[in-house]
Nucleic acid binder design. Structure first.
Lengths: 193, 193
DNA sequence: GTCTATATTCTGATAGAC
DNA sequence: GTCTATCAGAATATAGAC
């Protein structure tokens, strides 16, 4: 098996798998369907991945790494704690939209990962959520909001993650509108939209 | 095949299927596993359901019908528009917890339904969400909140539905705490928890 | 309403040639 | 790195006896 996890070819294959897993679900997508979409035969697939589950892992991992990178970049240009909260919300929505396949797969196909894969990805997710923890904590210290920080973080991330169920970026509502409304809700400010 | 959809026996079988679909996912649950858990042989299962997908449909439909009934009951004893919003949030959480299997399945296994089944269930969901539409509209008319009503409804329902990912009712946070915090967020009031 | 037995198709994965 | 060919098992669903 090819072990080079950063090859351009592998990234292409992972993106193709993400689309199929997103559209049809992991279990319903066969290795033959994956191979077809990749333009190779099913036997050749196992030159790139040791088994089907490893493809699922690669899809979810790529989505999470990308999300962390976008959050890091967006956060860098934010000053106040409110700006930081808005930056995180906007970054979260950006990755949900730009990298939608991988994130839908992460949400829906978690159960099909082996325990070992889950443990590795939980570490990544915790690292990502630490940014949210820190920024919400800052908002509390700045007196912008009171109450249970963990609960507020979970409700906010839940509302954002659920957008994959209904949000279509070609409508009237822009991702920035959405991020603003979410921040307004969390900070108990009047609706901005 | 037995066509009596309201028989007690069928309800038992549907509840058993809900548990397995919730724990292992629809595609990973075989008809043999279902039959085992039901105490019958796999061939006998097709006396009760015409195919596997019909079991999935029955699981999700039962969860939705139950949710609608609970919402109707809880709403009946609410007076002000704020009380009604809180009632809907509490009812939503109650069904998510009491009927967790069916709702987890509804969230995760939607893709495995036939288009026909999806269309039928979308009607049920729309009927359910109409309660939310009406109550949020009332809150706007009462001047409790301004802005995009559809967006507020979706963010609220998203935050609530996402609770299946993290909420465990045996912790310190009660379902009522959760409902209160959500209402406070939607109505932009100070945190109640 | 449940059983046994089985038809039929599909599944993930492997071996070895090129 | 991709191919062909195939293994071994598992999947849903059916048929007919009881």
């Amino acid at each position: 098996m090819n072990l080079n996890k950063n090859s351009k070819r592998r990234k292409e294959l992972v993106a193709i798998a993400a689309r199929l897993f997103c559209d049809q679900g992991y279990e319903s997508t066969t290795v033959r369907m994956l191979a077809d979409a990749m333009g190779i035969k099913s036997g050749s697939l196992f030159h790139h991945f040791s088994d089907k589950q490893e493809i699922l892992y690669a899809v979810i991992e790529s989505g999470m790494l990308h999300a962390m990178e976008i959050a890091r970049q967006t956060l860098a240009s934010a000053r106040t704690s409110k700006e930081k909260l808005h930056a995180l919300a906007r970054a979260h929505l950006s990755t949900l939209l730009e990298d939608r396949d991988a994130h839908v797969v992460a949400i829906y196909e978690w159960r099909s990962l082996t325990q070992e894969s889950r443990d590795l990805l939980v570490e990544l997710r915790d690292a990502y959520e630490t940014s949210w923890r820190e920024v919400i904590s800052e908002c509390h210290e700045a007196g912008l909001i009171k109450g249970d920080q963990g609960l507020q973080r979970r409700l906010a991330l839940g509302a954002l993650n659920w957008t994959v169920q209904w949000y279509h970026p070609d409508g009237e509502l822009t991702p920035d509108d959405l991020a603003q409304e979410l921040v307004a809700m969390v900070l108990r400010e009047p609706s901005a939209v």
